[in-house]
Design a protein around this nucleic acid. Structure first.
Lengths: 143, 143
DNA sequence: TGCGAAATGTAGCCTTGGCTACAAACTTCG
DNA sequence: CGAAGTTTGTAGCCAAGGCTACATTTCGCA
């Protein structure tokens, strides 16, 4: 019984995984942002920016470490592994594309940023491709 | 301690409320669908369609009742209140618009349906308006 | 160098959505 | 009318993300 019981996956896949993925992505994205800004991501800063208490961030980072997305030593900053960097880049690319798509269809910039936050975690790869194609065609027509 | 502790709202507002709203909307939408199809929504059917065990659906319905979105009596079907119907209609309208928007930018129909499921819960009213305006302009140009 | 402030870690509890197991009510039909 | 089967309800457990409280480790500066 060390592995997930298949009979529970279905239910698990409802709200749970939905939120779980978004959470992971939010943390990875934030760590990447902080790394770019300060060279490292400190637990306190991560917690502050995500609006959670620091133990919550600690737990999340522990999970990222379990999943091989980040590394850290006690009382030191958190860093993304290659896999983590890759995920971060993917998440950010998706974010940019979603924002661009929203703007392209007439959503005001500030609102586009805001809504993209929630939307981006639910855009499949194929849909993202479609967005890119659409943006390319738009750009072509206009520029 | 009967009311929400303000100091926890911030954190609560992160992942929690995000998933919570989506969940509520999913249930309300499903109940509306079943009502349209069978005249009433039975717990077992709701659970089956949402892919959860029936006690899970029971709990969710209890929550809908608490929030004044649905009513039901023991061993009877579940019905939406006016507020519930209103939310259902709003959710469905949003769903239709999101699907239409996705299709308009080139996302294949089946994929549009699938992704809309996750996306629709994160589209703000103003963004939805923008989508509608875009679709109207598209429709105007094309036909 | 040493002490106090700031940052982390750890423990432990709450809430929520899920599930299983079992009890109770309703339905169907012989 | 009553037994069998189906649908609901209830109880109780788990995992996960949040939080507070308290212990430790670092860091900054007199």
């Amino acid at each position: 019984m060390t592995e997930t019981d298949p009979s529970q996956i279905k239910g698990f896949n409802r709200a749970r995984e939905r939120a779980a993925r978004a959470l992971l992505e939010d943390y990875v994205e934030m760590i990447a942002d902080l790394a770019a800004e300060f060279g490292e991501a400190r637990i306190t800063e991560i917690a502050a920016r995500l609006g959670v208490a620091h133990p919550t961030a600690t737990k999340a980072v522990a999970r990222l470490k379990r999943e091989g997305l980040a590394v850290s030593r006690p009382y030191r900053g958190v860093f993304l592994t290659e896999a983590g960097e890759a995920l971060a880049e993917q998440v950010r690319a998706r974010h940019r594309t979603v924002v661009a798509l929203l703007r392209a269809v007439g959503v005001p910039e500030d609102l586009a940023e805001l809504d993209a936050e929630g939307i981006e975690h639910h855009v499949s790869t194929r849909t993202l491709k479609a967005f890119e194609a659409f943006l390319a065609s738009q750009g072509g027509e206009k520029g």
